[in-house]
Amino acid sequence: MLSANGKLHRRPLVGAVLEGRGDMAVIAGLGASAWDITAIGDTALNFPLWGAMGGAAMIGLGLAIAQPERAVLVITGDGEMLMGVGSLATIAVQAPKNLSILVLDNEHYGETGMQETATGHGVDLLAMARGAGIKHSMLVTRPDEVPGLRAAIHARSGPFVALAKIDPETLPLVLPPREGVILQSRTRAAILGPAADLE
């Protein structure tokens, strides 16, 4: 799971976290995070974003409030989380137990050509999350920490924010459906049953 430069590889990490995910709903931030969850396995309980940069965590909050018994996981990039960083405060105040956020921090805007983000210059998103009032947080840098990460996400004792320092690698594209109506409709049906389309 470690690359030559000692950083975690993103897809094996995401695969390990989603192992035995059950009825967990997963929102993925635009770009590489969306390709990652799709590479692990595209399912109706995946909601990969094609845009809405900065919005992934708040989509997770709306869903977590609506479905309090279901684990909801947001997997997103450092750039995406920085754009929506205020939502950490909003989420901390609402304190949904079933919501986890995993930031895949490659210290770059990968999708747009690997430009540096602020996290490569000392900006600590986890400290920002803690400062926002997120009480349950975790830094992940080594493979032996991944089982603990997975357990924390599945425990539903959130809101939980984890940040994994990952290798800034560019991986082959594995694209989910692009049609937004299909993406929303399949997730609603998986959560609410087939009658969701008649609402």
Binding site: G55, I59, L61, G62, Q67, G84, Q184, R188, I191, L192
Partner: peptide, 10 residues
């Protein structure tokens, strides 16, 4: 964004 998530969850 929250409204999108709320609707996903019914």
């Amino acid at each position: 964004a929250m409204m999108a998530g709320a609707w996903l969850g019914g």
